[in-house]
């Protein structure tokens, strides 16, 4: 059984999101007796001068971090073009032969607002 020292100072990690579409960002850690107090401390401690859309607090003991040994698994060879558009860039030339433009990332992402009809 876990025995833990009774303390007011529990560790919480604080994250926030700037806008509804931005990724969550890590800020810093703070001490508080429980998560309700932690979340009430978070904005004023770390985001006094910036706008935020949402805040998360996570008890540190619930975050599983990588060990130094595990971090070694993060390395990759630089031979994975087949996973990215970079490996298919030659299609641009191909399509040109058929008098078509390539549907690249820029083009495809621009469809977000709807595609204009045309022949």
């Amino acid at each position: 059984m876990e025995t833990r020292q009774k303390t007011y100072f529990e560790e919480f990690e604080v994250f926030s999101r700037k806008t509804q579409t931005s990724p969550v960002q890590y800020h810093f850690s703070l001490l508080a007796p429980n998560e309700d107090i932690a979340i009430m401390m978070a904005q004023e401690n770390f985001m006094r001068r910036e706008a935020v859309d949402d805040i998360w607090v996570v008890k540190r003991q619930n975050i599983r971090k990588m060990t130094a040994e595990e971090k070694k698994t993060l390395q990759r060879l630089d031979n994975k073009d087949y996973r990215t558009t970079k490996g298919y860039g030659y299609l641009k030339k191909k399509w040109r032969k058929y008098e078509q433009e390539m549907l690249d990332e820029k083009e495809i992402m621009s469809w977000a607002g709807g595609v204009k009809n045309g022949e």
Binding site: E2, T3, R4, Q5, K6, T7, Y8, E10, P33, N34
Partner: peptide, 11 residues
Amino acid sequence: WVREALAPKVI
């Protein structure tokens, strides 16, 4: 007393 009152109970 504040810190005592709100210290999480021992698990």
